[in-house]
Write a protein that binds this DNA or RNA. Structure first.
Lengths: 149, 149
DNA sequence: TTTTACCCTATAAAACAAATAGGAAAGGTG
DNA sequence: CACCTTTCCTATTTGTTTTATAGGGTAAAA
């Protein structure tokens, strides 16, 4: 099981925007530079986040991107769902489950249980926490740098 | 995030063997037919499970496969690890993490936390539980069939 | 000695991930 | 207005991984 790059980059971009919350807005270029994500690749990521209504540049094209909601109101799972319809670690779960045995399958139950557990966890963490954590890490970093002078 | 087929098939094969625990042993062909897994593909799965010491056919080649340990002593994560060295949903976790930012990255922390949660969950479930559940499901199924006569 | 079951390596086909490329549209600025 | 920047959109490429299948060798039971 691997997390895809879009979701990972998407989270990092969103943390960056969350740290800018209440600020001046951020251009794609700025996010790309700060997070070292290919500018062109970020195109797709921003597009997905925008389509899902998680970010917006409502004050005009050159106003920069902002979170569309409060950081507290955006969970990690919200961001995950910008890149995949839903978390579904196996296909037998959910509507389009092709497996006929799923109704009487202990394995299916197992994966379904894990799936729920992961969703629950991703839903319990919001951008506010992550931004605060990142800010703390950044400060710690700056302090560490000072001692090296 | 998707679970791969080998792990899924591997679990199903192991549940089948767990239900046979204390029994006569099962041939690859038998497992393949019961679980509707391609006989040839099952080759690789059985090979991996055997290499990891989870199953054995110690009483001779034609004795059939058995669990190498008690069902209670084999966790889902043990089986998972037969097909991947370890669960690692992102690469920045662990020894070969290539990401320089990982030490000061809230995102990395996030995925690391999720990773641990998943491992904990997979480690908390053992084959004994799964086999019992599957047996219950099978019986329920047989009963249901009766009513349809 | 024939059959059965396991064991091993190579290869193919398909799907997916990750990124790049090219350019259209639109807004702000000198 | 002309021009630069930024967003927006679609297509294409490249590489990797997944999901098998194929083919044959080995060993032991019947």
């Amino acid at each position: 099981m691997k997390l895809n790059t879009k979701t990972r980059y998407g989270i990092r971009a969103m943390i960056e925007l969350a740290m800018d919350w209440g600020g001046k807005g951020m251009f794609q270029k700025e996010i790309s530079e700060r997070q070292e994500i290919s500018y062109k690749y970020l195109d797709h990521i921003i597009s997905a986040l925008k389509t899902k209504g998680l970010i917006s540049n409502v004050d005009g094209k050159k106003s920069g991107y902002r979170l569309a909601k409060k950081p507290e109101e955006i969970s990690v799972y919200d961001i995950y769902k910008a890149f995949e319809p839903a978390l579904q670690i196996v296909d037998c779960i959910g509507e389009h489950g092709e497996c006929v045995r799923a109704k009487n399958c202990a394995a299916s139950d197992l994966w379904c249980g894990l799936n729920n557990k992961i969703i629950e966890h991703l839903d319990s963490i919001n951008l506010s926490e992550l931004a605060k954590k990142q800010q703390a890490l950044n400060q710690r970093d700056e302090k560490a740098d000072m001692y090296y002078i």
